[in-house]
Amino acid sequence: MIEYLVFAAAFGLLLLGLHRKVIARVQLRPGPPVWQEILHALKFSFKSTWVPKTASATLYVGVVLIGIGIWSAALFVVLAGESILILFAIYMLHKIVEHGFGLSSGSPYGKFGGVRSVISAASEIPLFVTIAAIYFFTDSLLLRDIVAYQAVHGPLLLIAPPAAIAMYIVILSKLPYGPFSIVESKELVSGYKTEHFGVWRAGISVIDGTKTFVLLFAFVAIFIGAMPFWAALVIMTIVLVSLSFVCAVTPMLSPFDSVTVQGIVTLLMVGYAAVLWWVMP
C-alpha cells in the first residue's frame, strides 16, 4: 500500500531524471545526474515555506493535496485492474489541478501557465478516441479484462497500433521538454509551478513522479499486457527513453499550434474509430 506509493513516486522521479539525462546526451550536453529529480524533491522539502500574500490560501494548499491524492488513487486503480475510464478521468482532472496551481497564487506567470493549461485541455481528446478504439476490441474497459483479452489475442500494441500511438502522444504531452509541453515552457519561468516553492514544490515533485509512473505503467498494461513486475519496469524505462528521444529532437510548438496538431491527431483517431466501427461485427 504505502510502499507502492513511495516506490511509484521515487521510481517516477528516477524516470524523469533519466528523461533529462537522455535529452542532454542526445543534445551533446553532460546533463544532470539521473537521481537529480529525487534530490530536487528532498531539497524543496527542506526549504522554508509560506503562502504568498496575494494567494487564495485554501486553494493554494488544497490543490497540492488533491494532486497527490488523485494520482495515488490512479495508482491503486491501475494496480487493482479497475476501469481505465477512471484512470483517464484522473488524467483529465490533472488539468484542473494545474489550473489550481496557476491561478491560486495571483502571480502573472502562474496565471499564464494556468491559461495555457486551459488552452491545452482541448488536446486531451485523443484519449477518449483511444478508449473507444480499445472498447471495440475488448468490449470492456476494466483493466483486468483488457489484460485478459491480451493474454488470449496477443498485445493490443499489434492489434490496434493507432490507439497505442495516440496514447503515446498523450503521455508525451505530459512530459517536460516535449513538443506539447506548453504549460511549463521557459518563457513563463516555471509556468503554473512558479509560485509553489518549498514544501509545496516538493508536493509537485511527488505528483510528477507518481503521474509519470502511473501513465507509463498503464501504457504497458493496456497495450502489452500482463508480465512480471520487473519486466514492466524495464519496458516502462524503454518507452520513456524513446519518449526522451522524441523530446530531444523536436522543438516546442507554439501554444495554439500544439493544440491544432493534437486536434489533427484526434481527427485521425476519429477516422480510425469510424473504420473500426464499420469493420467490426
Binding site: 527542506f46 522554508s48 515555506t49 504568498p52 495571483g106 506567470y109 514544501v199 516538493a202
Partner: peptide, 19 residues
C-alpha cells in the same frame, strides 16, 4: 507528504508578494 516537509523545516517565512 506535506506535513513531513513542514515538520523538517517548520519555521515559515514572512508573507510576501509573488515573483
Amino acid at each position: 507528504v506535506l506535513f513531513l516537509g513542514l515538520w523538517w523545516r517548520a519555521p515559515g517565512g514572512e508573507e510576501d508578494i509573488p515573483f
